[in-house]
């Protein structure tokens, strides 16, 4: 059973009763390349030259091109759906704390911050973040997934 308007099934990864606060999803690490940014520009339609045109980025006072915020959110989203299963998110929100730069190693951190039953829906809340190799936070946010229950 699911709430009104929800497709009742997604990829089964977590079972509500087996999830505890503090549980962590598998971390993903990715070293950002300029090719990633070009691919993301095409895939998203965001052709802001700050993300692919080194000449224009430098002219604008930036040390180089920098990553799309939405690339970071997308990469972190990959780690989240790996953990909770595709099709189960009910909410995903982030703040873009810092720009990302080519050659940075970006690592995801997905931690269960709580769980609750609301209108018969079994919900798992997550703290999510993307950090670089020095622990600098790039993206900080939260997500909620509806997961199956044994009951």
């Amino acid at each position: 059973m699911m709430g009104k308007g929800r497709v009742s099934v997604g990829e089964r990864k977590l079972v509500y009763e087996e999830v505890s606060e503090g549980d962590e999803g598998p971390a993903r690490s990715h070293t950002l390349t300029r090719t990633d940014l070009v691919r993301y520009a095409g895939a998203s339609g965001d052709f802001n030259p700050m993300h692919h045109d080194e000449v224009k980025a430098k002219a604008a006072g930036q040390p180089s091109v920098f990553g799309h915020g939405m690339f970071s959110m997308g990469l972190l989203g990959t780690a989240i759906t790996d953990f909770v299963g595709v099709g189960n998110l009910t909410r995903y929100k982030v703040r873009f704390a810092r720009q990302t730069w080519p050659d940075e190693e970006l690592t995801t951190k997905v931690v269960v911050s709580g769980k609750r039953v609301e209108d018969g829906r079994h919900l798992v809340d997550l703290d999510v973040r993307l950090v670089n190799q020095d622990g600098e936070e790039k993206v900080v946010g939260e997500a909620t997934a509806e997961v199956p229950s044994r009951s």
Partner: peptide, 10 residues
């Protein structure tokens, strides 16, 4: 700059 983004999935 992109400050925040939020999706609510039905």
């Amino acid at each position: 700059l992109h400050g925040e983004e939020e999706f609510i999935y039905h």
